[in-house]
């Protein structure tokens, strides 16, 4: 049976002396705490199904640091790796894949130029183009941009609007429509983050994850809001997500990935153990 994926997310930032670190890591007993390669190895040993690396600076320096991290990780870790953050050109994708990544995520670039999804999936294959969608519920249901009105996580009618530039800029695009379009353009997967849930640790934004997961025929990765393993269970069972992404609950050693998967299995969710 195809298992549900548990994916730790590493926010990579350039550090001093050309090195790089993972933001917000509080590992105990970890050599070189914060070195993304050490962390990637640790997560691999714990049973992570994939690794996601995000370049949160999206700068030239950040990209160089990221390529180095991917190359060093690919020497030792043999599970799929996805890289995102600031990808703007076909050459960006090529250099990341060449370094040893398997997939890339596009977000702002794709919103501004949807043909970028088609162009890059035609060249590299759908399987490596993940469209990252950041969105936020908008209670103004009379907005002419609103296409799909659903009940948001607070139980109120709303539409979900795509936001870009790290959530700062609303776009007037309906998130469900955008997910369908991303699929049509050749995206192989959707990574969905609701800004209403991100960082809260109150749980994923289940209504929009469920709505998008049911609207497309490609896998959906739930992202943003995981505060405990029960939240992962909810994303899989209540919102039909194919994968659950989390950062802080793993970085802060609240759970190992193995513990999270043990819990999911005990609740009947198929996972790789």
């Amino acid at each position: 049976m195809l298992t549900k994926r548990v994916i730790p997310c590493l926010d990579v930032v350039p550090g001093e002396r050309g090195g790089c670190v993972v933001k917000g890591v509080e590992f105990v007993n970890l050599r070189n705490a914060g070195d993304p390669v050490e962390l990637a190895k640790r997560y691999n040993e714990q049973g992570a199904d994939e690794l996601v690396f995000l370049d949160i600076t999206a700068s030239h320096e950040g990209r160089k640091a990221m390529i180095d991290v991917i190359e060093r990780t690919a020497d030792e870790v043999f599970i799929p790796m996805t890289v995102g953050g600031g990808i703007r050109t076909v050459e960006d994708i090529r250099s990341i894949l060449r370094a040893g990544a398997d997939k890339i995520t596009v977000n702002t670039t794709a919103v501004k130029d949807p043909s970028f999804i088609k162009k890059s999936s035609d060249i590299f294959g759908s399987q490596c183009i993940v469209t990252a969608i950041d969105c936020r519920s908008n209670a103004n249901v009379d907005d002419p941009h609103a296409v799909n009105i659903i009940e948001n996580k607070w139980g109120r009618p709303a539409w979900y609007e795509v936001v870009i530039y790290g959530g700062r800029t609303p776009t007037g695009i309906d998130a469900i429509e955008w997910a369908k379009k991303a699929e049509e353009l050749g995206s192989g997967e959707i990574m969905l983050t609701s800004m209403d849930a991100d960082g809260t640790k109150d749980g994923y934004d289940l209504p929009i994850i469920r709505a998008i997961s049911n609207a497309v025929r490609i896998p959906v990765i739930a992202s943003g809001g995981a505060g405990n393993v029960e939240h992962m269970y909810e994303a899989f069972v209540k919102a039909n997500a194919d994968a659950a992404l989390a950062a802080s609950i793993f970085h802060y050693c609240e759970y190992t990935i193995g513990q999270a998967k043990e819990y999911l299995r005990s609740k009947g969710v198929p996972v790789r153990l």
Binding site: M1, S126, G188, R217, I218, P219
Partner: peptide
């Protein structure tokens, strides 16, 4: 089915 068939299977 959802395609691609993506992920870990036995």
């Amino acid at each position: 089915l959802k395609v691609p068939h993506m992920g870990w299977n036995s």
